[in-house]
C-alpha cells in the first residue's frame, strides 16, 4: 500500500512538472524514477518510453503505466496512471472554471483570438517534427497525402484511417514497397 502511494505521488510530481508532454518529460522522469526511487535504470526508462511512443494513447500515460506495473504489478500500473493524470484534472478544472467567467470580456477574446494563431504555428511545428521520423519513403508519403486530403474533404471518423493505414503498413512492408 505504501509503495502504491509512493508511485502515485512520484507520478503526480511528474505530471505537475511536465508542460506539454513528449520529450520534455524525460529529464523529469529520470530524476523521479531513476535517481530518487531507483525503480528503473536509465536504459530501462528509455525502453519504456519507446514502448509508450509506439502504443496508442498519451505517451506520458503509457510510460507511467509501464513503470508502475514493473514496480508493483497491476495495482502499481493503475496507481502511477492515476498519479500522472491527477494534477491535470485539478489544474485544468480550476482554469476552465475561471475562464468560462471571463470569456465574455473583450480583452480576453482578443487575447484568445491571437493565441489561436499561435496554436496554428505550434501544430505546424509539431507536424514538421513528427514528419522527420515518419515520412522517409514514397509509401509513407502516399499514406500521408491520402489521409490528409481525404480527411479535409470527407467526413469520416479518424478511426477508419488509423485501421486502414495499419493494414496498409503491413501490406506495403510485405510487398516490398517500404524503403523505396
Amino acid at each position: 500500500m505504501k509503495k502504491l502511494w509512493r508511485l502515485f505521488l512520484a507520478f503526480a510530481r511528474v505530471g505537475v512538472m511536465t508542460f506539454g508532454g513528449g520529450y520534455a518529460m524525460i529529464p523529469i522522469l529520470e530524476r523521479e524514477i531513476v535517481d530518487r526511487h531507483g525503480w528503473a535504470s536509465n536504459e530501462e526508462l528509455m525502453d519504456y518510453y519507446a514502448v509508450g511512443q509506439c502504443t496508442p494513447g498519451v505517451i506520458a500515460v503509457n510510460t507511467a503505466t509501464f513503470i508502475g506495473y514493473k514496480t508493483a504489478g497491476i495495482p502499481g500500473g493503475i496507481a502511477a496512471t492515476l498519479g500522472v493524470i491527477f494534477p491535470s484534472v485539478v489544474i485544468i478544472t480550476l482554469i476552465a472554471g475561471v475562464l468560462t467567467h471571463f470569456a465574455d470580456i473583450p480583452a480576453v477574446q482578443s487575447a484568445f483570438a491571437a493565441i489561436r494563431v499561435c496554436v496554428c504555428v505550434l501544430i505546424f511545428n509539431a507536424v514538421l517534427k513528427l514528419w522527420k521520423g515518419a515520412v522517409k519513403d514514397k509509401g509513407a508519403l502516399l499514406l500521408f497525402l491520402v489521409v490528409f486530403v481525404l480527411s479535409i474533404f470527407l467526413d469520416i471518423s479518424p478511426v477508419f484511417y488509423v485501421i486502414l493505414c495499419a493494414l496498409a503498413g503491413i501490406l506495403f512492408t510485405r510487398w516490398g514497397v517500404r524503403g523505396k
Binding site: 509513407a140 490528409f148 484511417y161
Partner: peptide, 16 residues
C-alpha cells in the same frame, strides 16, 4: 510494419 503505416496516418490527421 503496422507502425510504418500508422505514423504518416497520424501526421496526416493532425495536419488536417
Amino acid at each position: 510494419a503496422a507502425f510504418y503505416g500508422l505514423r504518416p496516418c497520424s501526421i496526416g490527421l493532425i495536419a488536417a
